[in-house]
Design a protein around this nucleic acid. Structure first.
Lengths: 206, 206
DNA sequence: CTAATAATATGACCTAGTAATATTATAATT
DNA sequence: AATTATAATATTACTAGGTCATATTATTAG
């Protein structure tokens, strides 16, 4: 009893690892890996509550698909609370563990910059906004889990160039100050600069 | 002929979008959405070369699973090519469509900032590096698809504070210049500032 | 009217399973 | 040695979400 039980428990443990490192492995592959029948694998999975490959695959896909926005695609980092075009705006970001630096619980600078930058680009009234330059200062570290409120204010507007001041706070105080120079283009201008996708014509903004 | 062909082509176009925005939709759901039979959907998919849900789901999962680091946690934006601690470093970023601003083919400023920032934090010799401030300038827009080379150079080092100059180029020329003030902490110091995760002690760096 | 295309249908097959039940092998206890 | 428990394997029926090939029925343009 003991021996068999041991090999089984051992297999369970290894199986968990195996599936964790490659969630796309099928029962058949697991069966040949562990040199047991496919039925054993299925019984095992059921015991330890691991769903079938397709479920696992879909879970991975849905989770990552949902998170894919976090930094990369990220039309907007943080949630827009208020936008008064060419005047001011507010955005809120709930920081999460993934935004931390390695083993520290400090949020990466570029995450905060991204929130500031997207807010700066959003509050200007333009079809297309491009950041030209910025002077920024991280005045205090932000801890993972803290909620960051960004306040934007358009302080100067001179033709296409607008200056946006951003300050960001957590409940503990000021964490970021920055001045962004944003260039505002309309679709016409953007078209001339050949920066629009050829397939698209009009539609949204930012 | 023309009318039907048109509705079909129209359906094909919408179907592509539909599947792009939700790759997990089944033929059945598509059929009821477009109010055609499931067979039509399958014929359509075959014509335009879109695989079945499970294949799509798996593709999403595999792609994002592999890239999980890039997207989400984003320890490092861009690929490190060379690091000479406290002296200089190089990183390369292949820009993709998701990094673009809305309908333009211009890469978002904060994506470039993230590449610069992560390089600046990587080349300093410290257990934990925190960006304190930065003056940056986006000298030319980067088009989606372009490859961005970032060069970092430590120009000043005064106690914990180091200054890192970053310039970034595409094949078309300079696109970004920046000066980063980076604060370097060792684990001891980081511990005192209570910015380490309680569960972890040592391990990596940056 | 006819030929072409679109839409729908049918039937056989596939993968990677679930679920329930039965059988065989092995090992531990009494 | 016989009993009992567990592990492993097998069997059968069923499922979702398809593929693939081959019809059949509308619609419509020439």
């Amino acid at each position: 009893m003991t021996e068999k039980t041991l090999t089984m428990l051992n297999r369970h443990r290894k199986m968990k690892e195996k599936i964790e490192e490659n969630p796309f492995i099928t029962d058949e592959e697991l069966a040949s890996f562990f040199e047991v029948s496919i039925h054993t694998i299925r019984a095992d999975r059921k015991k330890i509550g691991i769903p079938e490959v397709r479920k696992r695959t879909k879970d991975v896909a849905v989770t990552l698909f949902g998170q894919a926005k976090t930094l990369n695609a990220a039309e907007q980092i943080g949630e827009l609370l208020e936008v008064d075009l060419d005047r001011e705006g507010l955005s809120l970001l709930d920081t999460t563990e993934e935004m931390g630096i390695g083993q520290t619980k400090i949020v990466r600078g570029h995450v905060l910059f991204a929130q500031a930058n997207s807010l700066a680009n959003t509050i200007v009234d333009a079809d297309v906004a491009l950041t030209g330059a910025a002077q920024i200062r991280f005045t205090a570290p932000v801890r993972v889990g803290e909620r960051v409120l960004a306040k934007a204010r358009v302080v100067k507007s001179k033709g296409r160039k607008k200056e946006v001041e951003i300050i960001m706070k957590t409940k503990r105080g000021l964490v970021f100050q920055g001045m962004f120079e944003v260039y505002c283009l309309d679709f016409n201008m953007a078209g001339k600069l050949q920066i629009l996708k050829s397939t698209e014509l009009q539609g949204g903004e930012e």
